[in-house]
Amino acid sequence: MLLVIEQGNTNSVFAVHDGERWLAQWRSATESSRTADEYAVWLSQLMAMHKLEFGLLNACVISSVVPQSIFNLRNLSRRYLHVEPLIVGENAELGIEVRTSKPSQVGSDRLVNALGARELYSGPLIIVDSGTATKLDVIGSDGGFEGGVIAPGVHLSMEALHAAAAKLPRIALQKPLRVVGDDTISAMQSGIFWGHVALIEGMIARIKAERNEAMTVIATGGVAALFHDATPAIDHFDPDLTIRGLLVIYRRNTRDHHPEHR
């Protein structure tokens, strides 16, 4: 079985695939100082709830945008799975053409998303990934990565508003009943929620206009579930985009010999 680890700046996802389907997946807050042993204690308890154990895992693929965490995640695989992990950006061949001026600067999460999207969707694509940052990435009709947009994520915007304005409280992220708020909190919630929707809609429209072609829009990421049904600009909500991309990378690098089948 395969252990997939996708680590973002805010959250990390751990998932298990048996060669045919995803058996389980778990999300935790990203903590760059968490040791391999701490990961193992946390993960073993969750796996036990699904009648899984480390002895069943014999492959691991990792994508992380937090460089200081990779050492501990690598050690988790070595000590507890007894395998050398595939790590995006280090020893994993992705098989995607990156058509940017500085390909090495493109985050591994963006390329993994592109690979996951190519498995299910055809034609030119826009991937909207709502996490710590909100990213809109463009995938060409032939599957190449062609660049994108990076904007502050919704939670960053909320924290910045609270931190910079002394009288504005910290609020919960939720869809307001009306656009025009009748008190401070509802006004802030509207500005955060509908402002973010407007950002997504506006950038999608500008990307399509600049490229002058029909494009399929796929939303993913930790907070995308709140936004995807609030706008017709998003065609599909796909929460498994990133882990599917990591499965594609694993299979490409093992040349169709999949230890997760064992």
Score class of each variant (00 low, 15 high):
E93P: 00
A29Y: 11
N91E: 11
R252I: 00
S108E: 03
R211I: 05
R178S: 15
R206N: 12
Q7W: 02
G181F: 09
A160R: 09
F227R: 02
L23E: 10
R118S: 15
I127N: 11
I185H: 02
G143A: 04
L111P: 01
N212Q: 10
E210A: 12
E53R: 09
S130H: 02
D142R: 12
G8H: 13
R74N: 08
S122V: 10
A225T: 08
I96F: 03
F54S: 08
H261G: 03
L246F: 08
S28N: 03
H162D: 00
T100K: 02
S44V: 04
K135V: 13
D109C: 08
V4S: 14
S108D: 08
S69W: 06
E146N: 12
Q68G: 01
N253C: 11
W26Q: 05
A92N: 09
N72L: 03
K175P: 02
G123F: 04
L125V: 04
G143T: 08
D229A: 13
V13P: 00
A151K: 03
V128I: 13
H236L: 03
R34S: 14
T254H: 13
A166D: 08
H162G: 00
I96H: 03
G153D: 09
T100I: 13
Y250G: 05
P67K: 10
N72E: 14
I62H: 05
S157G: 13
K208Y: 04
L73M: 15
V13N: 03
R255W: 06
I171V: 15
L226Y: 13
S141L: 06
L168P: 02
L156I: 15
A233H: 12
L57E: 08
R251D: 14
S63C: 14
R34D: 11
R34L: 15
H228V: 08
S157V: 00
I234G: 07
Q68K: 10
W42E: 14
S33T: 12
L177M: 11
A198P: 04
R170K: 13
W22G: 01
H261P: 00
L120V: 04
N253M: 12
Q105L: 14
I70A: 10
V223T: 12
P124W: 00
G181D: 07
T132A: 13
V98K: 10
L43H: 01
L56V: 05
H17F: 15
V154H: 02
G143M: 04
D129A: 12
S186F: 01
P176H: 11
S122H: 15
D238V: 13
S33I: 05
A166K: 13
L57R: 08
D256S: 10
R78C: 04
G19M: 08
